[in-house]
């Protein structure tokens, strides 16, 4: 990796850390009240319950992103593009990746907030899975496909093993672009979280007149971070074309 790549990565990581820090402060400042625990999860009756869960989703998101990267590398580097496994997985991912994250988000909000009024990590994870995994796999795959095939062949022809080629050639060349994909994904998740907060806030306010929430203010923090991540990812895309 050359110096300018490194610079971009460092900048990206610093920004990421800042945003997370901002969030964390915001979370700490909202008073945290646990909802009533029932068999299906936790009843949503305050917004801070939801925030608690959303922060809890951060490590889960990281795991899902890593999982998607692994799947993408497996598909591109290990499976033959002509095998039926590849084609089937490719097709399924394509279908799920085409659906806008808004759709998943609204479904999730409908079932959790409106229908059951209960929240649990399981339901959130399912929703985030569909928002994160297909798109991340898709973008990562496309990035890997752009890697100069002939260089890869040259490495194989010199006798290199697969892991060697991935470590010495594919990852160094794709890292900035993969980061772009991850940033886009994070931005999508944040936007959906904002939507979620709005719907929850509205529901809670409606059912419980004691609580009234400053919904716009809550949502705008998430939305502007989503925007920030999108902008960063665009910058990367501009600077790092293969």
């Amino acid at each position: 990796m050359n110096r300018s790549n490194l610079l971009y990565n460092v900048i990206a990581i610093v920004i990421l850390a800042l945003v997370l820090f901002m969030f964390w402060n915001f979370a700490a400042s909202t008073s945290y009240v646990e909802g009533k625990i029932t068999s299906g999860g936790v009843v949503i009756d305050t917004l801070s319950t939801i925030y608690g869960y959303l922060y809890g989703m951060i490590p889960i998101c990281c795991v899902l992103i890593l999982f998607s990267l692994a799947v993408a590398f497996y598909l591109e580097e290990w499976l033959s593009h002509r095998s039926w496994q590849y084609r089937i997985i490719e097709r399924i991912i394509a279908i799920f990746a085409c659906i806008p994250s808004l759709v998943y988000g609204l479904f999730c909000a409908y079932f959790i907030v409106v229908k059951s009024q209960q929240i649990s990590y399981l339901t959130l994870t399912i929703a985030v899975f569909f928002i994160v995994v297909p798109v991340t796999i898709r973008t990562t795959q496309q990035v890997i496909q752009k890697v100069d095939l002939s260089v890869r062949e040259a490495a194989y022809a010199l006798g290199a093993k697969r892991m060697r080629v991935i470590a010495d050639h594919v990852i160094p060349n794709t890292f900035p672009m993969i980061l772009t994909g991850i940033f886009t994904t994070i931005s999508r998740v944040l936007a959906i979280a904002a939507l979620f907060i709005v719907i929850c806030g509205w529901k809670i306010t409606e059912s419980n007149s004691k609580h009234s929430f400053d919904i716009p203010n809550n949502a705008i923090v998430l939305l502007s971070s989503a925007l920030l991540f999108s902008v960063i990812s665009c910058l990367f895309e501009k600077k790092k074309s293969l």
Binding site: V151, E153, A155, L158, G159
Partner: peptide, 28 residues
């Protein structure tokens, strides 16, 4: 692959230094 080397249509050195390119094969 050590015995039979291959040169391709488009020059395709690895995106590393000249020095490391020459040693890439040996290091494997």
């Amino acid at each position: 692959r050590k015995t039979v080397g291959m040169v391709f249509q488009r020059p395709n050195p690895l995106p590393i230094s000249v020095y490391d390119n020459i040693l890439f094969g040996l290091r494997i």
